[in-house]
């Protein structure tokens, strides 16, 4: 048992430390034990769960790894203590693939507090080399949890269709720029349609202070009209100019 490691969990994450039977979970017992009774009626799983309740899912896994070196821990029972009914297949999968992750990626996963559901984005990936490549990139860019998961998912999708150039990905220095790039590739057709429409709109001869733009809202693209007028009379003039071009606008909308 790596007492130093356990000790660091306890001092970092919980104010007190506990013991179970002859298993010393921390050597530095500070303060009382509160309502938690160390009598033998508590199982190892319950005791572990009690003092590890504030840890992230992956820190819990790390703790389990350590304790399991010497004791049989019923993983399902341990997670059930948190009203968290872990799917054992999922747990086994995570426990297996986690061994292949770099320390940097594991660090990101812990920092961002990924849960088993988040991990489903990538733990079933077929190609290990592709996966490692993008996990390394994520470890390097240190994106938010949401951006990181999106980057991994989009990359794996695009890779499955050979629609991505790895050497180009290496060049990206921020998660936002990479995400934007991946997005454009994944939604290529819709972007193309929106751009075409924008191009058609730009060719319509409107007054200087009238701008027509295509905006995307989820599964729809919409027309945004921007008018800057000096006053009500000017506003009316500009609106009439748009009215005169409505046929061309309709045309552009229907051909792209």
């Amino acid at each position: 048992m790596n007492k130093v490691l356990l000790n660091s969990y306890l001092t970092l994450k919980t104010p007190r430390s506990y013991a179970w039977k002859n298993l010393i979970l921390s050597e530095s017992i500070k303060g009382g034990l509160g309502s938690f009774d160390l009598s033998l009626e508590y199982s190892l799983e319950e005791s572990l769960a009690y003092f590890s309740k504030t840890l992230s899912f992956f820190s819990k896994l790390e703790l389990l790894d350590e304790v399991q070196k010497e004791y049989d821990v019923d993983v399902k029972k341990y997670f059930a203590c948190f009203s968290f009914y872990l799917d054992l297949n999922l747990y086994n999968r995570i426990a297996k693939v986690k061994l292949k992750w770099s320390n940097e990626f594991l660090q990101w996963v812990k920092e961002k507090d990924l849960n088993p559901k988040d991990c489903r984005t990538f733990i079933y990936a077929d190609d290990e080399a592709d996966l490692n490549f993008i996990l390394d990139k994520v470890s390097m860019l240190k994106p938010s949890k949401m951006n990181g998961l999106k980057i991994i998912d989009l990359y794996l999708d695009l890779k499955a269709y050979n629609m991505i150039d790895e050497s180009l990905i290496k060049e990206f220095k921020t998660d936002q720029s990479l995400l934007k790039h991946l997005h454009k590739l994944k939604f290529k057709e819709a972007f193309k349609r929106d751009e075409q429409l924008d191009l058609h709109f730009s060719k319509i001869d409107l007054l200087k202070n009238v701008k027509l733009k295509v905006i995307r809202e989820g599964d729809m693209n919409k027309i945004e009209l921007n008018i800057r007028a000096w006053g009500p009379a000017d506003l009316l003039k500009q609106m009439e100019s748009v009215q005169k071009k409505i046929k061309e606008i309709k045309n552009a909308w229907s051909i792209s």
């Binding site: 794996l156 499955a160 269709y161 994944k186 939604f187 057709e189 989820g218 599964d219 729809m220």
Partner: peptide, 24 residues
């Protein structure tokens, strides 16, 4: 697989929070 037909389209989140193809 990620390459099955259902996973290959461009799906966007629609008003009802479901993923759908572009409305056009």
């Amino acid at each position: 697989s990620r390459t099955s037909f259902v996973n290959s389209g461009e799906m966007f989140v629609s008003k009802d929070k479901k993923l759908r193809y572009d409305s056009r």
